[in-house]
Simulated scan of single mutants.
Amino acid sequence: MASRVENESSFDAILDRLAQGLSLEDKTIANKAGADIFKNNLKKATPKSDTVYKHGTPHLRDAIVEEVAPTGRVEVGFSAESERGHIARFQNDGWVATDRNGKRHKQVPGKHFWEKAEIESKGKIGEVVKKSLERSIQRKVGR
């Protein structure tokens, strides 16, 4: 049985690198990989009308963006510039139709495309983030 560690200095260096934890760049890369999966599934699930809008107004599907926060968090949603977020909410959740006199009519059902994209992405996001973090750890270990 060995009484000492071979290559002790390189082993200590590996432990020091692992003790530093993941860098902000590693976290961002992992989160972006997961966000890309959700963004692609959301794009597929989002309805697109045949209407050609005036003044270059984008369709919901074309207004989906990713935003990277300084903390490494990556959020997927609809761009503020497109002003389509509230339309997406109505389309997703549904609404109660009212006339110009304020009289309530029927409930217009939502399409729930956001939830469909979440369900479609659920296991895949975790797997992609896990692989990305494993690559980061392997790089820190030096393999």
Rank of each mutant, 00 (worst) to 15 (best):
A2V: 03
R4S: 15
R4M: 12
R4T: 15
V5H: 05
E6L: 14
N7R: 10
N7S: 08
E8M: 07
F11I: 15
F11G: 01
A13Q: 10
I14T: 02
R17V: 00
R17S: 03
R17M: 04
G21E: 06
S23R: 00
S23D: 06
L24Y: 00
K27R: 09
I29S: 07
K32L: 13
K32N: 11
A33E: 11
G34T: 02
G34V: 01
A35W: 08
A35Y: 08
D36E: 15
K39I: 01
K39V: 01
K48N: 13
D50M: 08
V52L: 15
K54C: 03
H55R: 12
G56Y: 04
G56R: 00
G56S: 02
T57I: 14
H59E: 02
L60H: 06
L60W: 03
L60F: 05
R61S: 13
A63S: 15
A63G: 05
V65T: 06
T71A: 06
R73V: 15
R73S: 15
E75M: 14
V76T: 01
R84F: 01
G85R: 11
G85P: 15
I87D: 08
I87K: 12
A88H: 09
A88M: 11
R89E: 11
N92I: 04
W95L: 07
W95S: 04
W95K: 03
V96Y: 04
T98M: 14
N101Q: 12
N101P: 01
G102C: 03
G102H: 04
H105F: 15
K106V: 11
Q107T: 12
G110P: 15
H112D: 13
K116V: 00
I119R: 09
E120A: 11
E120M: 04
K122F: 03
K122E: 05
I125F: 05
G126I: 00
K131C: 02
